[in-house]
């Protein structure tokens, strides 16, 4: 059989799999958090809902889930290469750059909300939302670039 059609390994790099894990875990974790908070609202004001525990557990749970998913991914295909090359680093920087914008948006929003004396609930939640958006949009950018190619500029 022709070696030119060699397809011994998956076409997805280790770094792309990590971007997928980050994307999926972030979306599921935030959806779970929103469901818990809205479930506790019970017709009252959102600012009266106890959210701190749910938020901290969600953040911690997402970190643990990402680590576990990467371990499972490694165990499922122990021969898969974990090498990171120049293309992975370029895509990683691009994704981080895209995601970073949302961290800044979150920080500026929180600052303005604090100055306007908004409830702590909204300040904490806008920061958390922007962290999630940073992870989701950054990971999405990485996945798209892995699939469609590194843009030239």
């Amino acid at each position: 059989m022709s070696k030119i059609l060699y397809l011994g390994e998956a076409v997805v790099t280790h770094e792309e799999k990590r971007a997928w894990i980050m994307l999926v875990v972030s979306v599921i974790a935030y959806a779970g958090y929103v469901a818990v908070v809205l479930g506790r609202q019970d017709g009252g004001s959102l600012t009266a809902v106890p959210y701190v525990g749910a938020l901290l557990w969600t953040v911690g749970g997402a970190m643990v889930a990402s680590i576990v998913a990467e371990i499972v991914m490694g165990m499922a295909n122990p021969r898969a290469s974990r090498v990171k090359d120049v293309r992975d680093r370029e895509i990683g920087r691009l994704g981080d750059h895209v995601g970073q914008a949302f961290v800044i948006i979150g920080a500026v929003s929180a600052m303005l909300m604090a100055m306007a004396e908004w409830d702590w609930f909204w300040i904490a939640n806008v920061i958390y939302l922007c962290f999630v958006l940073s992870a989701v949009i950054g990971s999405l950018a990485k996945v798209i670039v892995y699939r469609r190619g590194v843009p030239q500029w």
């Binding site: 390994e9 997805v12 790099t13 290469s81 090498v83 090359d85 293309r87 992975d88 190619g149």
Partner: peptide, 10 residues
Amino acid sequence: IGVTRQTVIA
């Protein structure tokens, strides 16, 4: 050339 196979494919 010191890269991953996925980079050669790309």
